[in-house]
Design a protein around this nucleic acid. Structure first.
Lengths: 211, 211
DNA sequence: GTCTATATGCGGATAGAC
DNA sequence: GTCTATCCGCATATAGAC
């Protein structure tokens, strides 16, 4: 599976945890090595540069999202959508340093900035297909133009919500995110357009997360 | 006025421009001094630490937003709202490094991270008052609960939109943002709830920004 | 594969002359 | 107020022994 217990893979795991906890900029290669109890020289044997560690983690993140984008076409009901959003927020949360530290990341590693743009483009296409599917299956009722705007808003929300949450007082910045709550907030975007037959599940969620 | 031509103020102006263009992390005090054609020692005479520069810029940003929050109560029509959003996006764009590099900023200067949370709390209160006012003046029709969610979505959008825009391919990352477009996207949040009397202005904007 | 030791450079910050 | 010169610490990256 993904996590063999090689030193190389332990480095990736520890780096991800530290990047998420302390920020990409604040975590040096020394810190990663110290966290694992290995020497900086040993770490350098496995990854010649910090950039390579970030690139591997970024690649894994891309693959996670690409899989989720691929299944966007098969969503034809609100509960399917809620589950899909939930899974997406979980993935983004596991690699939360990527979007949270995006400005720093793109500045330090321009190639990754480019790939982040490409990934967003792909997310947008998947979201548009998703919204068109929701219209086609009668879950929501909107114009084609409005559906495109909805897709953009959904990508915006999934991309930035977890970073914004840290700015809202009352949520501890260090506490882990609640993907369910995030998914609910994303669903409120389509709420005004949901057809009467599909409204029951939305009301159920509203009771769960606003109660 | 705000910008006397003292060296101290020129440092603040150049720092803001460089932070916006290259990112808070990538701009050293040496770079700022070089940009101005002064020595690092001279810069240190005016600001004993980089943190102090950032704090001054942050304070100016706070004041800009606080003024805008203060006038939120007097908004009772869609075109007022559009103007207010426009002004807010302009302010955020002028200090765009703050939200864009927020994760880095909060990590390096925890005190500013706290103040950013407090600022967000204030923005939320203002947005809630705004939405309540829109309901009271008949511009939108929603439940009180829905109005609170709308306020949260509006603060989320104004805070994060300009950072997200850089991820959307087709917009050059270096090109300056379009506050009008951003304001229009924010208005689409309340679009489903706008009463029939107030819809004309929304349709006008839709033609302008989607055409 | 893993270690110790080190080279190199940069950024923040300071001291003291002018 | 402004400069030159410098110290200190950290981070990346490397060299070479085990």
């Amino acid at each position: 599976m993904a996590s063999s217990n090689t030193t190389r893979d332990r480095i990736l795991q520890a780096s991800l945890a530290l990047f998420n906890a302390q920020g990409l900029a604040a975590v040096s290669t020394h810190k990663i090595a110290a966290e694992l109890g290995i020497s900086p020289g040993n770490l350098h044997y496995h990854f010649k540069a910090k950039q390579l560690i970030v690139e591997w983690l970024f690649r894994r993140f891309e693959q996670r999202l690409e899989v989720l984008d691929g299944s966007a076409g098969s969503i034809t009901a609100i509960d399917d959508l809620w589950l899909a959003l939930h899974l997406r927020f979980e993935a983004i949360d596991q690699y939360r340093f990527i979007y949270r530290d995006m400005a720093f990341l793109a500045g330090e590693y321009p190639a990754l900035g480019q790939r982040a743009q490409a990934l967003t483009a792909q997310n947008l296409l998947a979201a548009q297909a998703l919204c068109e599917g929701l219209v086609a299956s009668g879950v929501i009722e909107t114009s084609a133009e409005q559906a495109r705007i909805l897709a953009l808003q959904m990508v915006f929300t999934t991309t930035c919500w977890l970073s914004f949450e840290r700015l809202v007082p009352g949520r501890d910045a260090l506490a882990q995110a609640d993907p369910g709550l995030a998914a609910f907030y994303t669903l409120t975007l389509i709420s005004p357009y949901v057809s009467s037959e599909s409204r029951a599940y939305l009301d159920y969620l509203r009771g769960k997360y606003l109660g």
